[in-house]
Nucleic acid binder design. Structure first.
Lengths: 260, 260
DNA sequence: GTATGCATCTCGGGA
DNA sequence: TCCCGAGGTGCATAC
């Protein structure tokens, strides 16, 4: 094929050896019909179905079905030994145990359509990401007038007994203002989180306002904020942060011959 | 190969047509070196690296790297049209847009090691799972003495203005007892959630106790509970629920010839 | 190692 | 459809 992909044997006794030899060295991918059992933090069982099994170099194990982002079953990296074997000459089985969490994972393939190794190169895969909550907090600290005119920022990411306060400020009347920042729609839990921060300061006898910043406020959350005398502030983040420009130029140093 | 797996062309202009023709009909999997851009709820960019692209029949798109359970980038099902095209004769590009969330996803392959279609059969993939929170709540309702002697269960999964109460009971002194059940270690948010429920009943002038059930209580959570006058109860779920027995027999109706 | 909270959380259930 | 909470949450980060 090429030096990156190796198709494995369709003969089970050979396949088993190929698989066991290559685990942890390359990524292994199997396409087949299988049933699966997981026993650990929860106990789950899937009956026979067409799936994709992906075993990464760190022994992360993913079993994907025909839809959805989440695997139907999986095991986190750090399994103990993963072993394949053949049962009764006709079924391929995978068995693993992850001691750290006392979890075991067992898959029984009634059919293997294709098995391959992928000699994936370990890049430093850190993403460049814009839009974490932290980015928004920093933006608001530099542009507090988005929330309210004449806010004086005092501190941010400040730890108190009940957690971390995103932004701590004072308003024109010298009231203490606690600001909690969310990058999504506000939830009841968000409102309550803010409430407990405000309570903390009020217990110390201070005059305190609380403002929840989010992209939207469902009715229930609005009611909750109102009943606790907290304020809301809608900030449409999508309109504030610019689009990443998509580089569409092709490197001139690569030529068609480089690929195959 | 077989009727399940079709290896696609290594010639880009042919590959593009094969891909576009098969999307939504089968699962498509590509192994290659690519850079990728996602712009939506967040903006993220990955530079060139070896990855696996999986496009499921529901147009869930997963881009997996060499480690970890989570894809490095992804898009939920329900993209608008997904299109492949060839750029400057030497790069394969994928482009998608998901109107619902105004998200776009763009991948540029500098190399394609292998591309294939997987004619995955749509089973009803519902899992049989034991160990959901609901199972624990039901167990406690049948065995309330695990929490406390002489508890009288009044109701469960009861909706109040601020959410659903797991278990609502009365103790020997006829006090109202609100019980919140967690299947994991208790978190500060759990403690606050319970406080929310207890506050609701106290406002109605009732004498209320709150008990948080979990497998463990970090010190900070203990402190929260204490300051809120709430109680804790450790229940070691893993010791209570039995192991799923693993069927290891092979169906006698299948023979080796059935497989290849 | 444990604990804590964010996340493109994803997903399912209920209104 | 929106809203809400559970999750085998995963995962980085701070301690």
């Amino acid at each position: 094929m090429n030096n990156k992909i190796t198709l494995l044997s369709q003969e089970l006794s050979t396949l088993v050896n190929q698989l066991n030899d290559n685990l942890e060295k390359v990524m292994v991918v199997l396409f087949g019909r299988c049933s699966a059992f997981f026993d650990g933090r929860i106990k789950s069982h899937f009956t026979d179905g067409d799936r994709v099994l992906m075993i990464k170099k760190d022994l992360t194990i993913l079993l994907h079905g025909s839809s959805g982002v989440k695997p139907v079953q999986w095991q986190l990296a750090g399994a103990g030994k993963v072993t394949f074997n053949v049962k009764s000459d006709i079924q391929l089985q995978m068995e693993t145990y992850r001691p750290k969490t006392d979890e075991s994972f067992f898959i029984n393939f009634s059919e293997v359509y294709l098995a391959l190794c992928y000699n994936i190169f370990e890049f430093d895969e850190a993403a460049s990401i814009i839009g974490h909550e932290r980015d928004f907090v920093e933006y608001l600290i530099k542009n507090p007038e988005i929330i309210e005119q004449n806010l004086q920022i005092i501190d941010s990411e400040k730890e108190i007994d009940f957690g971390f306060i995103d932004i701590w400020a004072k308003d024109l009347s010298n009231n203490c203002v606690i600001i909690e920042v969310k990058r999504t729609m506000a939830t009841p839990a968000d409102a309550h989180q803010l409430k407990r921060y405000v309570d903390f300061f009020q217990k110390k006898g201070e005059e305190v306002r609380g403002i929840l910043v989010a992209t939207g406020f469902p009715k229930k959350v609005k009611n909750y904020l109102k009943s606790f005398n907290l304020e809301s502030c809608i900030v449409p983040w999508q309109d504030i942060f610019p689009t990443i420009t998509r580089p569409s130029s092709v490197s001139q140093t690569k030529r068609l011959d480089d690929f195959f």
